[in-house]
């Protein structure tokens, strides 16, 4: 199958790869670019483990084709920490023990980050609805929701 040359930006860096037209963005990120933070839980848009941003919009990278992202901007979990400095959400996930196996965590973090950019002061209900497309088999969600609420509170204080 003829591959297509794709140039795109990932976490601010321009990258190039050759994509089979059937390959998902998730496959291209993991297999061609070596960015294995985004996970494949289902490959069908149900679990959110593959969450990334595409031009700032939260999407499932398993439901985007690699060939579609020519000239776009992608944000993944690898772009979340600032060097060695963890993003407040990442720190709060650790503090609240909001992960066990960790498979769902990159997706939750990417999704929660977009939420807090759009809504710095979400209610618990808003957090739960926003994250309804991220599935976790381990934590029972409660610690995740608390970690997001706590990170939001901390980020608001810093901004003030």
């Amino acid at each position: 199958m003829k591959k297509t040359h794709v140039t795109t930006k990932v976490n601010g860096d321009t990258v190039e790869f050759l994509a089979d037209p059937r390959a998902s963005l998730l496959d291209c990120l993991r297999d061609d670019l070596g960015l294995t933070g985004s996970k494949e839980g289902c490959g069908t848009g149900d679990c959110g483990a593959c969450s990334v941003t595409l031009d700032g919009t939260l999407v499932c990278s398993c439901l985007v084709l690699g060939v579609e992202v020519e000239g776009r901007e992608i944000g993944t979990i690898e772009g979340m920490a600032d060097g060695q400095e963890l993003h407040p959400l990442q720190r709060k996930f650790i503090e609240h023990a909001a992960l066990q196996c960790g498979f769902c965590t990159p997706g939750f973090l990417v999704a929660a980050k977009v939420l807090l950019e759009q809504n710095p002061d979400p209610t618990e209900t808003e957090v739960r609805y926003w994250l309804a497309g991220n599935l976790c088999r381990c934590t029972g969600y409660d610690k995740i929701v608390r970690a997001v609420m706590d990170a939001a509170a901390e980020m608001r204080q810093e901004a003030a």
Partner: peptide, 9 residues
């Protein structure tokens, strides 16, 4: 229809 991620597309 679907989750926040699905709404993005």
């Amino acid at each position: 229809v679907g989750s926040t991620q699905i709404q993005g597309r």
